[in-house]
Design a protein around this nucleic acid. Sequence first.
DNA 1: CTGAAAGCGCTTACAG
DNA 2: CTGAAAGCGCTTACAG
Lengths: 334, 334
Amino acid sequence: MTIEDVAALAGVSRAAVSKVLRNAYGVSEPMQQRVQAAIDDLGYRPRVAARAMRGTSYTLGVELPTMANPFLQGVLGGLIGFLEATRYSVIIAPSDAEGNSTQAIQTLLDYQVAGLVTIGANATADWLEAQATRSPMVMLGRHDESVNYDTVGDDDALGARLAVDHLYSLGHRRITHLTIGAAQHPHMSRSSHAMRARSYRHRMRRYGLTPETHIIASPTEESAYISTLGLLEQPIPPTAIFAGHDELALGVMRAAAQFGLGRSELSIVGYDDSTFASHPLISLTTVRQSSDEVGKEVGSLLLQRIEGRTEAAHVVITPELQVRGSSAPPPPTT
Amino acid sequence: MTIEDVAALAGVSRAAVSKVLRNAYGVSEPMQQRVQAAIDDLGYRPRVAARAMRGTSYTLGVELPTMANPFLQGVLGGLIGFLEATRYSVIIAPSDAEGNSTQAIQTLLDYQVAGLVTIGANATADWLEAQATRSPMVMLGRHDESVNYDTVGDDDALGARLAVDHLYSLGHRRITHLTIGAAQHPHMSRSSHAMRARSYRHRMRRYGLTPETHIIASPTEESAYISTLGLLEQPIPPTAIFAGHDELALGVMRAAAQFGLGRSELSIVGYDDSTFASHPLISLTTVRQSSDEVGKEVGSLLLQRIEGRTEAAHVVITPELQVRGSSAPPPPTT
DNA sequence: CTGAAAGCGCTTACAG
DNA sequence: CTGAAAGCGCTTACAG
């Protein structure tokens, strides 16, 4: 069933049906009614592909490093919720096993997406600027000073400072930071993780403390678990660990549990405030950034660009510290 | 840049380029090489929309009730991983806030997806059979005896039996089952949750026990938490709760913690073996079904159908009980 | 093996 | 306000 069938039933031209479909200017009330009736009668729905050939695909593409991160799930949920009131759908392309995002972004562009969101893309700013001329684009997880694409993210420097200040004021002096390897990549210097790590180091020095940054192999709970096992075996282990994000904090907790360390013996702070962080059995102190809010903001920025905005927007969200049971003063014996 | 540009550079016809693109029959070695060189030179990539107009969209659509469920995330991950070796991409459409899937399925069909996976779709089997004539389709979360679409799922009757048997053999006699409201819907009688609930009731009666099925308002951790609060306030509360899935079990745990009940005072069994279930702080006894395996199976079935299979396949995966710390003999005072 | 031509289902200027 | 016609970038028979 095509637009032709609708036109035939309504006794009008294909162009007329197309106009009604898009709410375009220049259709008389009676014609609009007749056409709408035919559409409803037939249960007609326009083909996205045919539409994309001339107009827009009404599709937003999301490139992300992993589905497994609850924070990203929240962002996706926020975005999808925001789009419910619009005609846009979402298509998702995960980056490859090595974390390279270029393939995924290319795939999305092949779909002629009306807009593109990329999350912590591992690609040079130059390449991204070039792609952003092909489609509206907003980036998450990196605070690039871009001109062709927007960025959304929370104030990572502030977030890390909140974490360090909290642990310091509890009395901790040996605070280790767990961060991910990808953030070390030269063109990832403005990634959220890199900025958290820098802020952590800066703040530690302000307090006259020695920063101990520990880079883990991959951004997984498992990897954080193994790294923490190593940290705890040191002659003088840290009394507190500030993890790059909540998933990692979960791995730290697992290692601590395995070492038989009670909650008061190793303080742990995460980042994101993922859903599980507030569960009483986990009760993770963490830096809260609203994934839902981020998702909505992303959708809103994309629609603005689709409607014509060209100057880059750089939205910074203020994080808050969420204090829970996983952080406490260090044991007195230390 | 279009196929035209490639043809011009290689000095051949558009048809020739198209054939090379699709690895189609009837291209000489030298031409294939020349064309490929031009493609690489230009960095040409075919437009998905134009392709979908004639051939296939090389897109698989997934309709799902929520992004928040870790088991579904695993399924998605498994599917996406499986597709990495193919030319297929995935597009996702969430069902609406009331849990209706028809809109989402329609949207996916608008994209002329090459295949469709629907998860626990809340629609009549008749309607689904009709849609399945438009696109290959595989259904998750319902054991329909369909003819036009495939089903994949684990043996829910066995899973529930494993849970009840485990609790019974530990000595529990007051075992409550938490299930979701959607499963009560008449055309959802073959849904996973409905089958688990039936199997639970059947097994309880076999043991001469009274089944206590508790229907919660929505399939969320929060809802399970609130329901459990009510259950525990009863004069004679249950000594064990078998939750419809792990998310719900998490809510039960939260309520138990709030009631000050230790791990040995209320046994809890979940379903799915989500990633968090094995964390030592959670340590949830649960019925394990491999989400990754399910995702791969879904992809495989869809590709089979795309390649021509027409008889329906009904794949049943055997679940296993994963015993952890959340289940123990009931307190002797009971 | 190779290519000219038709056509997929829409939207977009452009006449009327 | 209304519609005939061209065209988006591919693929698919069909000749040669």
